[in-house]
Amino acid sequence: MSDQADGGSSHRPSNDGALALALDGPTAPPRVNGELVFDTPWQSRAFAVTAALADRELLSWSVFQEALIAQVAAADRSGVDTGTPNGYWGCWLDALGTVTDTTGLVATSHWSARCEELADRLPGHDH
């Protein structure tokens, strides 16, 4: 497995999810001895939703990577520990929201509204 190499075709999404994972640098996912670290199911689900979109070429890994870099940088500036699974996958989720909004797949306003609906609909969720 290697770092993503998208060259000049930044608008041609890779359909190989494995290539999308940076192994080094600030956007490398949390790993322990070779495995991705997911503390909770929402983290692996955020990853899987992203990879599923990439598989269908609805999302470009290179564009996503740029969004993830921006989210990690912003989180670092605000004091979030992006070295933890919670911090890192939170950035991942934010990047997913950014990319799906800019590509027109899911408007941020619709996402927010659905969050409100689910929060109201699921009392006791995760407690």
């Binding site: 955020a46 659905r114 689910l118 407690h127």
Partner: peptide
Amino acid sequence: HHPRPTDPAIRVEAIASLLIEAGLIDEARI
């Protein structure tokens, strides 16, 4: 006993449900 809309678990389910409803992905693919 009420999750906040900013709970990441809620946010993931929200975006997944919207993408699934739009027919872009499905649970099997996830």
